[in-house]
Each structure stands twice: as C-alpha cells, then as structure tokens.
Computed example of a mutant assay.
Amino acid sequence: MNTNQRARHLRLPEATAEDEAGAADRQFVAALGRGLDILRCFDEGDAELGNQDFVQRTGLPKATVSRLTYTLARLGFLTYVERSGRYTIGAGVVALARTMLNNLDIRQLARPQMLELAERFGAVCCMAARDRNHIVFIEMARSSSAITLSTDVGSRVPIESTALGRAYLAVMPADERTALLADLKQARGKDWPAAKAAIAQGQEQFRRQGFVVSLQSWQRDVNAVAVPLVMPNGSGIYSFMCGGPSFLIKQAALENEIGPALRQMVYRLEVGIGGRRGVHRLRD
C-alpha cells in the first residue's frame, strides 16, 4: 500500500462524525477521540511518524496535532525520538494491548483448534476483531509448512477488502452495519461501488454456505475463507480466517474443504462458550 493509499484508508470520516456527535452528546469527549486517532495512525511498517504524518492521516490542524502528540508522549503512549524529531508507539500502548489480549479467553480456547486447521491444510489461520473501518489481527497460527504472509498480530487491514471483514459485516446488527457502510462509502470514494458489490457478495455467500471466500482481493497473491463468531450476551464479534498464497490455496479447496472445516471449528467454539448455537450448524 503506497503512502497516498494508506493516508486515504486512515483518514476516516468517523472523526468528523464523532466531533459532530460530541456537540450533541455531552458524554462524548472529542479531545480524547482525537488523541486515539493519533495512535491509530501507526500502521504495519511504521516505526516512526512525525507530526506532519499525523496531520496528513487524520486531517487535524497542525497545532492540534502538536498538542496531542506532546500529551500522549508525556503519558507514555508515544515516545519522542530526538535524533529524528518523530514518534514511536510508547510502552503504555503495548501494556494496554497485552492486557487486552491476555484477557481474551476465546483467544486461548481458539488457538489449538486454529493450529490444527493450519497444519491440516498447510495454511495460515487467524482471529481478528473490528477497529472502526479496519480489521485487526489478534491471534495467528501458522502450519510448519505454510509460506509466511506479511501479517502478524496487530496488523490492520480495511474491513471491506478481506474475507475477515466481509464475514464480520455479514453478522453485524443491521443498524450498526448501516452506519458502518455509510462511513465506508464516504471514505472509499470512487472505490466504493466495487467494495459495496464485494460486501453484498460476501453476505450472500455467508447466507448460503456459512462462510465468506476472498480471492486475491486483499493481497493479489492471497486466497482465504472466513467465518464470524458472535459472542454471547452481545459482548462482541470475531472473525476467523484460513488461507494462504493463491498458487497453493485454490478456490475449490476453500469452498469444498477449508471453508466447511473452518465453519465447524467456529461452531465448536460457539458451543463451548455458550454463544449463538446453530448459526454455524454442522453440515456434511
């Protein structure tokens, strides 16, 4: 992803929408939202970012960005690098992320089954959650023979261009999905018609088969299949994916073998946690 593409994906319309909502919602703290937008600017491969990078990626005024980065650095969420005059992610963010991951019981429950599936198909299996207009990887399992993909825990990808994201969208509550689609339409501009068609196709795939297939849409050399998991009591949605290089993982295998196996894995997880039993019923 080049610099212009990355900036387009990271400059999300929600920031403006949230600021407008904040004017009418006394509970919403706009300054806090902007500070979190600064932290979200860091993408895979971004070791350091400067204030100008934050301005370009958030659309916030330079003076506002300067105050926010200074404050975040004082609190330990950013670290200022004097030799470059730029910032890196601070230890405070790492500590929060580690606490969050350690508290995800579903992650520990899923990992052995993910590894078994990855080994069985010579693939990569991952678990992900939504971060606004993106999907973020929170667990990964690779087979000993799998060719490593350019992703790891913490990587973020656009929600509409991955099997993971389209599977997530397929089970979102209708009102939340409508709001998210409106944000995506504004953010993606001329790319929206193709993205909208892919999302609709994913919803139809999930309705018919219980999984969503993505062929070289996220990365040109990656094929994958994904299945969503709805947590009990409305506590969240996660997506599980299995896939790999397109020259090894073919469409027929995704639809006839890997997809059904991933669907059954998620069904077992749902039963184990007391979730929405029957969403992924076992099939022959």
Score class of each variant (00 low, 15 high):
residue 4 N to C: 08
residue 6 R to A: 13
residue 6 R to Q: 15
residue 11 R to K: 10
residue 12 L to M: 12
residue 14 E to A: 15
residue 15 A to P: 00
residue 17 A to K: 15
residue 20 E to A: 14
residue 22 G to E: 11
residue 25 D to R: 06
residue 27 Q to Y: 03
residue 32 L to F: 05
residue 35 G to T: 00
residue 36 L to N: 06
residue 36 L to K: 05
residue 36 L to I: 07
residue 39 L to A: 06
residue 42 F to L: 03
residue 50 G to D: 11
residue 51 N to A: 13
residue 54 F to P: 03
residue 57 R to C: 05
residue 58 T to Q: 04
residue 60 L to K: 04
residue 62 K to N: 07
residue 63 A to I: 10
residue 66 S to Y: 02
residue 68 L to W: 03
residue 68 L to N: 01
residue 69 T to A: 03
residue 72 L to G: 01
residue 72 L to C: 00
residue 77 F to I: 04
residue 77 F to M: 07
residue 79 T to P: 13
residue 80 Y to K: 09
residue 81 V to M: 13
residue 83 R to F: 02
residue 86 R to Y: 02
residue 91 A to L: 04
residue 91 A to F: 06
residue 95 A to V: 11
residue 96 L to V: 15
residue 98 R to F: 00
residue 99 T to F: 09
residue 99 T to H: 14
residue 101 L to T: 01
residue 101 L to F: 05
residue 102 N to E: 15
residue 105 D to G: 06
residue 106 I to S: 02
residue 108 Q to P: 00
residue 109 L to E: 10
residue 109 L to H: 00
residue 112 P to Y: 04
residue 114 M to S: 07
residue 114 M to F: 02
residue 114 M to K: 10
residue 122 G to A: 00
residue 126 C to W: 07
residue 127 M to G: 12
residue 132 R to L: 12
residue 133 N to F: 05
residue 133 N to K: 09
residue 134 H to T: 12
residue 137 F to P: 10
residue 138 I to K: 00
residue 138 I to H: 08
residue 146 A to W: 00
residue 148 T to L: 10
residue 153 V to G: 13
residue 153 V to W: 08
residue 154 G to E: 09
residue 155 S to N: 12
residue 155 S to P: 11
residue 155 S to H: 12
residue 157 V to H: 08
residue 158 P to M: 07
residue 159 I to D: 09
residue 160 E to H: 15
residue 161 S to G: 09
residue 161 S to N: 10
residue 164 L to R: 05
residue 168 Y to S: 15
residue 169 L to G: 04
residue 177 R to C: 04
residue 178 T to N: 05
residue 181 L to V: 05
residue 182 A to M: 02
residue 187 A to S: 12
residue 193 P to C: 07
residue 193 P to I: 03
residue 195 A to P: 04
residue 197 A to C: 03
residue 199 I to Q: 03
residue 199 I to M: 04
residue 202 G to C: 10
residue 204 E to L: 13
residue 209 Q to M: 06
residue 210 G to N: 03
residue 211 F to S: 04
residue 212 V to Y: 13
residue 216 Q to H: 06
residue 221 D to N: 14
residue 223 N to D: 13
residue 225 V to F: 11
residue 226 A to Q: 05
residue 226 A to L: 03
residue 227 V to L: 05
residue 228 P to H: 09
residue 228 P to T: 04
residue 233 N to F: 14
residue 234 G to Y: 11
residue 235 S to L: 14
residue 236 G to H: 08
residue 237 I to A: 05
residue 241 M to E: 15
residue 247 F to R: 09
residue 247 F to M: 11
residue 248 L to Q: 01
residue 250 K to L: 11
residue 255 E to Y: 04
residue 256 N to W: 01
residue 259 G to H: 08
residue 261 A to V: 07
residue 266 V to E: 06
residue 267 Y to V: 10
residue 268 R to Y: 13
residue 268 R to A: 13
residue 268 R to F: 12
residue 272 G to T: 06
residue 272 G to H: 11
residue 275 G to W: 13
residue 275 G to Y: 09
residue 275 G to K: 09
residue 276 R to D: 09
residue 278 G to Y: 08
residue 278 G to D: 06
residue 280 H to A: 12
residue 280 H to Q: 14
residue 280 H to T: 08
